[in-house]
């Protein structure tokens, strides 16, 4: 078991190294100019440029992504619970939320900036807005996904609503919640960067706009790599938590 996990991890690492190699070959063999596509080595070398404050900018973006994602998870689950418990909440709020979800979050960005000025909090709000809905929807679906016959089986024993909820619905919804969180984690990354593009004074998205003007393509590539890295770490955390909480067979993948 352990050995197999190591093997899979090894292959994953190898695939990434091969992709780097391919990138390197495209640049060197194709003689691509550095302002179009810098080599991997040139890209990583920009990390040495202290003017770009890599640590600071990465931290800001990470806080925005994680913050927006965390709030989306908490509120998504709370709303799903409320909708499961109250028919009124579902019929009253769900149509509003669906309409809200139709708004392109990019279009929402400038408004949020008008309301809250630009900065970390604004970008957290945008990341939250884009990650919230899928988490809500999948959790809601999971809470409802109980076999009717199982409900009869416990209903014949006069199980209370609370027992059905804690013993059957809630644990049954966890695989769905994690599936929603995985989608949400990817979207939260996009949300935070969109926020930084629209208006900000720090973060990797902000940095990208700064270095774009100087045609420092290597720094732009590096920013993209770091943004992805934050996303990968978040996704990994969600997957690790899932592996801990959800029995293998119940996982939705």
């Amino acid at each position: 078991m352990q050995r197999k996990t190591l093997q899979v991890a090894g292959i994953a690492l190898l695939a990434h190294l091969l992709a780097l190699l391919a990138w390197h070959l495209v640049v060197t063999v194709g003689k691509v100019p550095a302002f179009i596509l810098p080599s991997p080595a040139a890209t990583f070398a920009t990390l040495g440029n202290a003017r770009y404050d890599w640590w600071g900018n990465t931290a800001v973006t990470a806080v925005e992504i994680m913050g927006g994602f965390a709030i989306a998870t908490v509120l998504g689950v709370l709303f799903a619970l409320a909708f499961t418990w109250s028919r009124l909440a579902l019929t009253l709020l769900m149509p509003l939320l669906i309409t809200f979800n139709m708004i392109p979050k990019v279009a929402l960005g400038p408004l949020v900036i008008v309301w809250m000025s630009y900065g970390v909090v604004t970008n957290i709000v945008i990341a939250f807005a884009i990650a919230f809905f899928p988490i809500l929807l999948t959790t809601l679906r999971g809470l409802r996904e109980t076999e009717p016959e199982l409900l009869e089986l416990v209903g014949a024993l006069h199980a209370t609503r609370w027992q059905v909820f804690t013993k059957i619905q809630l644990p049954g919804s966890l695989p769905y919640l994690f599936s929603g969180m995985k989608v949400g984690s990817v979207l939260a990354v996009a949300g935070a960067i969109v926020g930084e593009f629209i208006g900000s004074e720090a973060g990797l998205g902000y940095l990208m706009l700064q270095v774009q003007v100087r045609l420092d393509t290597a720094a732009m590539m590096m920013s993209v790599l770091l943004i992805s890295l934050i996303g990968i770490i978040l996704y990994g955390l969600v997957s690790a938590l899932e592996a801990l909480v959800v029995v293998r067979d119940a996982r939705l993948g």
Binding site: L153, V154, A156, A159, K167, G172
Partner: peptide, 27 residues
């Protein structure tokens, strides 16, 4: 009253023993 249906309807996240215990827990 105890019931068994066509589908086993076991809780995937519970081990066999805990699955068997469910009705007693509810009561």
């Amino acid at each position: 009253v105890g019931i068994a249906f066509q589908q086993p309807l076991l809780l995937k996240w519970r081990r066999v023993l805990e699955n068997v215990m469910l009705p007693a827990e509810i009561l």
